[in-house]
Structures are given as C-alpha cells and as structure tokens.
C-alpha cells in the first residue's frame, strides 16, 4: 500500500493547551493523510509539548503544505518534517509470552542475544520482553516469536526521534520570539 511512498516524521512543538491534538489531526484528515504513528510527551522545555507523528506520502510538497498548515495554528510553536536519513529514531515494543510455552521452547538466550531483548517480567503465567529499535527490528522479533513460541499480547509505541543536525530549531525560535517581544514592548512604551 505504501509502495513508492516515503515515510516522513513530523515534529511539532505546542503550547500545553487543551485540544491541540484535535487541531493537528484535523489537518491530517483534511489533507487525506493517515497517521502511522503518534507520540506525545512534555518536551525538555516546561509547558511545551512535543508531538512526533509519522505518515506516508509520495509527494514532498504535501509535507511542506501540511507543516505550514500546522505551524499556522495559534497554539503551535513550531512544526517541521524530516525523512529517516535526518533522524535518530526509535520505537519500543512489548511482547507477552506464555511462561509454559517459553519453557517448552527451551532457551530464551537466543532471543536475548539476537534481538538484544530485555526481560521485564517473569511470572508463573507470563514472560514479558522489551525490545527497542526501528520498526523492522521490532517487527522481526514479533514474527519470529509468533512462529516459535507464540505471542499473547504485543504492543508497539509511536516513533520518537531527534534530528542529527546541529541546529536546535525550537530554542532558536523561542530566543528569536523573546527578542521580538522585547522589541515590541519597547515600541509600545514609546
């Protein structure tokens, strides 16, 4: 379905106000774009939230327009997009396995070594694996576990990402806005 399409990662910084996510998703809906993954959390700067959204499209123009429309919303501080080459990105996945089936299977050392799996929980009923990585990696483990031990529950987080470039776009923007604010206040006093 996503042949010839590029996966874009959109990073959005917003004020922490009610309904921002709704404003963002509306823009995706209107532009007929499917959200592949979504991750939201407080950013490093207090009061500012960071959204990381991935979506497929075959036209970079669509991304440019999308980002401008998001950026235009009053509560949004900054929005930009990147392709995978510009990013260090990661997803988390949790796998719940039946302890009985794991014992039948024998060793789990193989999975720990091959997939760098962390074991979060071992109980009479279940064993929970954690794997961090790119989509292909978490998916690869899922497929192998499914065909060998069987997976009771599986969940994958949205992508989180940081840019490789030197530029810290948000802090630059905030600094510039502060400068503009003092300038504005100064002219108002005159």
């Amino acid at each position: 379905m996503n042949d010839n399409k590029t996966l874009y990662t959109i990073t959005i910084f917003s004020e922490n106000t009610v309904g921002v996510l709704n404003q963002i998703t509306t823009i995706f809906t209107r532009r007929q774009l499917n959200i592949e993954t979504l991750s939201v959390s407080p950013s490093a700067i207090e009061g500012i939230h960071k959204f990381t959204i991935t979506t497929f499209t075959n036209d970079e123009e669509v991304m440019k327009k999308l980002v401008r429309l998001i950026d235009k919303r009053v509560d949004i501080l900054k929005a930009y997009y990147n392709t995978d080459e510009d990013l260090v990105h990661q997803e988390l996945a949790l796998y719940k396995l039946s302890t009985e089936k794991v014992m039948e299977h024998g060793s789990i050392e193989y999975f720990v070594r091959k997939y760098n799996v962390r074991i979060l929980e071992v109980s009479v009923d279940c064993v929970v694996f954690l794997k961090a990585g790119h989509f292909d990696e978490t998916q690869g483990l899922f497929e192998e576990l499914s065909s060998t031990i069987g997976v009771l529950q599986f969940v994958r987080s949205g992508r989180i990402a940081i840019t490789k470039s030197k530029v810290e776009r948000l802090s630059d923007m905030l600094a510039k806005r502060e400068e503009q604010k003092s300038l504005l206040l100064a002219t108002q006093q005159i």
């Binding site: 009053v74 509560d75 949004i76 501080l77 905030l174 806005r177 502060e178 503009q180 604010k181 504005l184």
Partner: peptide
C-alpha cells in the same frame, strides 16, 4: 494582548 510566543 499584543504578543503570543506561539503566534507571529
């Protein structure tokens, strides 16, 4: 209001 940091 004359200034909002998220809105230019």
């Amino acid at each position: 209001t004359t200034f909002l940091r998220s809105y230019q």
